[in-house]
């Protein structure tokens, strides 16, 4: 088991958003987490990445045998956790290449590997750029600055390809993408699928799952996982809408 989330509760301010999440992700598995807006999908992704605006009030997360919640965000990243941001941040003045090399070298150093120099790094990223159809000019530009929405999302998956994580969490990577951009992103993600890498794909829409086919689907509602199943669950959800499950929650809640 790569990741085990047990009874996870988290709040922002006084507002409880996660109300007891249980989830197990085995090595090499792809899990989709679906749910309506406000159900807590993005909060779950951010808590796993270590964003400190959320306070964990209960529960634990074991990642690769370690207590994930006690680790600083950079240590999680160095141990192989990667989150593709729903809203990637623009960082004026820091070039994309410089940033990525600093990140990859921080991770390599953590594992006792030699740091890559600028030339080696360029050779290494060229192939990944092709995979995601990243224009060369995007590499010398400041991180995400002036990127279109689609370019930003592609840049996230490109970073994932460069950093080669063990656990990738994709937070609504599909939202706002046209079908061509979606296909490029999905191809990048699928190329990264491996028996040594697990993925959690957070999405509001079933469409993405036509291209990134999950092993398991979970439905989140009001801070809890209310239904889990195989990939067919996503289709059923598409047909019946989220209202179907909210009904189900109410049904289980009432005696």
């Amino acid at each position: 088991m790569l990741l085990e989330i047990k009874n996870l509760h988290a709040k922002v301010g006084a507002n409880e958003i996660l109300k007891g999440i249980d989830l197990k992700v085995g090595l090499g598995e792809v899990h989709a987490i679906m749910g309506p807006n406000g159900s807590g999908k993005s909060t779950l992704a951010q808590v796993l990445a270590g964003r400190d605006v959320y306070t964990v009030t209960e529960g634990e997360v074991i990642y690769d045998g370690k207590n994930l919640l006690e680790m600083a965000p950079e240590d999680r990243a160095r141990e192989g956790v990667f989150m593709a941001f729903q809203y990637p941040v623009e960082i004026p003045g820091v070039s994309n290449t410089y940033f990525l090399r600093a990140a990859r070298n921080a991770i390599r150093k953590h594992h006792g590997q030699e740091e890559m120099d600028a030339m080696d790094f360029l050779t290494f990223i060229r192939e990944k750029m092709k995979l995601l159809e990243m224009d060369e000019s995007l590499m010398t530009r400041p991180v995400n600055e002036g990127f279109s929405g689609g370019e930003k999302k592609r840049n996230e998956i490109f970073q994932m390809a460069v950093l080669e994580p063990k656990l990738a969490i994709l937070d609504e990577t599909d939202s706002g993408l046209d079908i061509d951009a979606l296909k490029i992103v999905a191809r990048g993600v699928n190329a990264m699928r491996s028996k040594d890498r697990s993925m959690i794909v957070v999405t509001h829409y079933q469409r993405l799952l036509n291209y990134i086919v999950p092993d398991f689907v979970h439905v989140l509602s009001d801070g809890r996982i209310v239904k889990s199943g195989r990939k067919e669950l996503a289709l059923e959800l598409e047909q019946k809408g989220y209202g179907w499950l909210e009904g189900a929650v109410n049904a289980t809640a009432s005696p």
Binding site: P73, A77, F82, I91, P92, G93, V94, F99, A102, A106
Partner: peptide, 22 residues
């Protein structure tokens, strides 16, 4: 921005310096 850099493995100190230099 600080969290974004840290979430990629860059230490807090280095991330602060990077943003300051930028």
């Amino acid at each position: 921005a600080l969290f974004y850099l840290r979430s990629r493995g860059i230490s807090q100190r280095e991330a602060r310096n990077l943003l300051t230099v930028a």
